[in-house]
Amino acid sequence: MAEPVIVVENLTRRFGDFVAVDHINFEVQAGEVVGYLGPNGSGKTTTIRMLLGLLKPSDGKATVLGYDVFKQSEDIRARVGYMSQKFAIYDDLTTLENLTFYGGVYGINDKARILHTLELVGLKGHEHTLTGDMSTGWRQRLSLGIALVHEPKLLFLDEPTSGVDPTARRAFWDLIYELAEGGVTILVTTHYMDEAEYCERVGVMRDGKLLAMDTPTNLKKKIITGDVWEVFAYPLEQGIELLSTMEGVERVGLAGDHLRVISSQVKKEAMSDLLSRENIRVEKIESGEATLEDVFLALAR
């Protein structure tokens, strides 16, 4: 078995009394697509900054591509790509000019490689488009190109498809899977379930702790042990209030035009009876499937 691309042991970072990252442990293998999910302020970015060697850990250790984050941070930064949501693209430069500029920062002056990178991210034919005129989805592709121009073996993506529609997101992830197939390892930090669902394994962060890390399927199986019910009962507001007082109900939430109930004890008939007794119109109650959002909300309690 090859050496893992990322090894993190008891990694900790304190800022004064505040523990931003609290003794986390995980490993990422070559070619994996791993999601790092948590709300703002949960320690995601602090973890990434330590893995990039930009911030010294207070405790614990970590290696990235075999390099020690304490001692060999320059070796790491030369070999990883980082795509941030707030990355600066020059609006008054074309896509080719932006990529040429950032390539230069990494010492890449080979025009063929720069053009190849543009092609890889699907911007061939748009070399001379001003980036200020492009949609969010296209700008994100260019940001990805900039993170890839030095052909990194490991890519950190920070909320890469934030604000783009499902079609653009799908296209972006097709690209990510192609990169992973080519052996690039990918770590995606996000607080969007839509993004996390695309990952092979997902770690859930909360208050500096890594609460769980597993495949989306296993997370759902292990953490949502109760049944999921899709309850179509109106008015929704009264439905929520009533069901949340019901004994044995673990969680009631809004899921669009209906309610989602998680419970290992309560059955369909009991819910239906209770709602009907209170004059709440029950259209139907169906068995549902756990989602990553359920997992997140369950762990967040």
Partner: peptide, 19 residues
């Protein structure tokens, strides 16, 4: 840009408004 817990809260408010 907001997490799922906050999003649930926000939607509960919207539902209350319309109902």
């Amino acid at each position: 840009g907001v997490d799922p817990v906050t999003r649930q809260d926000f939607w509960q408010l919207v539902i209350k408004l319309v109902s």
